[in-house]
Every structure is written in structure tokens, then in C-alpha cells.
């Protein structure tokens, strides 16, 4: 319990840091952010009055700490502000796009694990063998492959040549397959390498010998006794792969022209729509920090040796 409390406090601190970082990003704009935003919107240099009106409308005349405080308080209430370039609120824009990105992230995670766990186990069961060598080589290629290229490669082969899936856009399951494979295969490479290392460790443990001595089938020894132990670190890293998902989603959504958080962010950046940029960045940071927290807690659940004594029986 004490650990949990401490963990929560640091999480809140990091979230505070994330929000300051996110908000102060605007200050990086060369010149006046209001002018920059207006130029992107109207396509020409704005008049003095428009700038003043714009500043007034979006509360840009306040000093920085006041603006941050206002924004932070509104954000805690779920109000991320008003988009510069569209009539919508930032929250509702995010609300429309978020499900698409979540869908992509979940699907690619499933694909990644479905590839990585069997591959990593197959590698570890016979280390140094042909399967191991091939899997390791494949994993390294997977890590090295830029996912935007993999995306186009899949489009060329599976969509244009074989006509199996639609090229781009979003919609049903068939629109999800290629983006998810693109994102998932890169991730699977990292996870597979990790599964291999931890499985190699675990397979050497005395309790594996015990399991074999009971007369268990090797398959059960590997998939029940060994894998369950190997999963502990794997879950950690798989959770931390969320970073990869979010990084990748930006690019993969652009490749497949899927309306999601990634495309929303990129569009907002080009339109200099600062409230949207801040909102999306903050959301990404929050998701990431909370995932790390969740991973940490899962880890404790999966490994009964950790922190069970602290709990009342």
C-alpha cells in the first residue's frame, strides 16, 4: 500500500511536469503565435485589428503563468479549450478521433503478441538452432524497418497487386488489417527478442526441471510453467511498447490516411492550431504515464513474490 501511494505521488508529479512541458511548447514559436496561427488560417499577413481581436478572443494577453493556470484548471475539468481553426472544442475533436487510434493500437498489440510469443518461445526452446537464428534475424529486420515504408509495401502488395484490402481510410475491419499489421510487426520484433531472453533464463530454473520430473509433456512445461514466469518482464516491456504504438500511430495513420490522434496532431501542427496541439500532446503524455503505472501494478499481480506481504491477509 505504501508503495502504491508513493507511486501515485510520483505519477502526479510527472503528470504536472508533462502539462507544463506541453503548455510551454507554444513559446517555441518563432515570432508571435497569434500571427503565426492567423497566417496559417487565412493565408496572408493579418491586420493589426484581427490580431488584437484574436488575442482577446483566446485570452492570449494574460501573462504566461496565468494562462497556464487557467488552462490547467480547465483541463482538470475536462475542457481543453477551443480550436483555432475549426468551430469545435478540442475535447470533442479528440473524442471523435481517439476511438480510431485505440482500435489501431489494440489490434496491433494483439498482432504483435500473437507473432512475438510463439516466435520467442520457439527461439528459446532450441537456442542456436535454425529456428532461433531465423527468428532473431527476422526480429532485427523488423526493428530496423521504418513502418512508413512497411505500410507502403503492404499497400503495394496486398492492396494494389492482390486487391485483398482497401488502400486507405477507415471503416470496417478490412481497413484495420494493413495498418495494424504494419504497426504490430515492428512491435512484435522487440517483444519477441524479450520473450526469447526471459524464456532462456526461465528454462534453466530448477522448477522447470521439477515440472519435467513430474512427467509433464514438454509443451505444458514450456507454455505453462516457463511462459507464465517469463511473462512477468514481457508484460512490462509490452506495456512500455505503448510508446512505440503512439509514435508509430502518427506515421501509420498518415500512411493509411486514417483519421486518428496522429493525423489530428499533424494537421494541427501544420495549421498552428495550438490548443489542439496542446490537447493531443497532453493526452499522449497522460496515456503514457498511466500505462506505465498500470504496467507496474500488473507486474506486481503477476509475480506473487512482490509486495504480497504488505497486504493484510
Amino acid at each position: 500500500m505504501r508503495y502504491l501511494l508513493k507511486r501515485l505521488v510520483t505519477t502526479v508529479l510527472v503528470l504536472g511536469g508533462v502539462s507544463i512541458l506541453t503548455f510551454s511548447m507554444t513559446a517555441l514559436t518563432p515570432g508571435d503565435p497569434a500571427v503565426a496561427a492567423l497566417v496559417e488560417q487565412t493565408g496572408h499577413q493579418p491586420s493589426e485589428e484581427t490580431v488584437v481581436a484574436f488575442r482577446e478572443q483566446h485570452g492570449l494577453n494574460e501573462p504566461f503563468p496565468v494562462r497556464y493556470a487557467d488552462w490547467a484548471i480547465d483541463t482538470l475539468g475536462g475542457d481543453l479549450g477551443q480550436s483555432y481553426s475549426s468551430e469545435q472544442t478540442v475535447a470533442s475533436m479528440i473524442g471523435q478521433r481517439l476511438p480510431n487510434t485505440v482500435e489501431l493500437a489494440a489490434a496491433s498489440m494483439v498482432i504483435a503478441i500473437a507473432i512475438a510469443v510463439p516466435a520467442g518461445v520457439a527461439s528459446a526452446v532450441n537456442p542456436g538452432g535454425r529456428v532461433d537464428y531465423a527468428a532473431q534475424f527476422g526480429a532485427l529486420v523488423g526493428v530496423s524497418m521504418p513502418n512508413f515504408w512497411l505500410g507502403y509495401l503492404l499497400i503495394i502488395v496486398a492492396a494494389l497487386w492482390l486487391d485483398l484490402f482497401p488502400v486507405a481510410g477507415s471503416g470496417g475491419l478490412d481497413h484495420l488489417v494493413l495498418p495494424a499489421v504494419t504497426l504490430g510487426s515492428g512491435m512484435s520484433a522487440v517483444i519477441a527478442r524479450l520473450v526469447r531472453t526471459t524464456m532462456l533464463d526461465v528454462l534453466d530454473a530448477p522448477y522447470i526441471r521439477t515440472a519435467r520430473s513430474k512427467g509433464l509433456r514438454e509443451r505444458i512445461v514450456v507454455y505453462k510453467h516457463a511462459l507464465r514466469n517469463a511473462l512477468v518482464p514481457v508484460v512490462t516491456i509490452a506495456g512500455l511498447q505503448l510508446s512505440y504504438v503512439l509514435n508509430g500511430a502518427v506515421v501509420v495513420e498518415a500512411v493509411f490516411q486514417r483519421p486518428g490522434l496522429g493525423t489530428l496532431l499533424v494537421d494541427a501542427i501544420f495549421a498552428r492550431d495550438y490548443p489542439v496541439i496542446q490537447g493531443v500532446t497532453l493526452l499522449v503524455g497522460v496515456i503514457f504515464v498511466l500505462t506505465n503505472l498500470a504496467v507496474d501494478l500488473t507486474y506486481r499481480y503477476l509475480d506473487p513474490r512482490i509486495d504480497r506481504r504488505g497486504e493484510p491477509a
Binding site: 530454473a205 530448477p206 522448477y207 526441471r209 510453467h225 509475480d303
Partner: peptide, 12 residues
Amino acid sequence: FQDPHETLNPVF
């Protein structure tokens, strides 16, 4: 086996 620490699977 010897060593009773690790001969039982820690997660079951």
C-alpha cells in the same frame, strides 16, 4: 531436488 527455494514454481 535439493535447494527448496527454486524447485517449486514461484507463480503457482
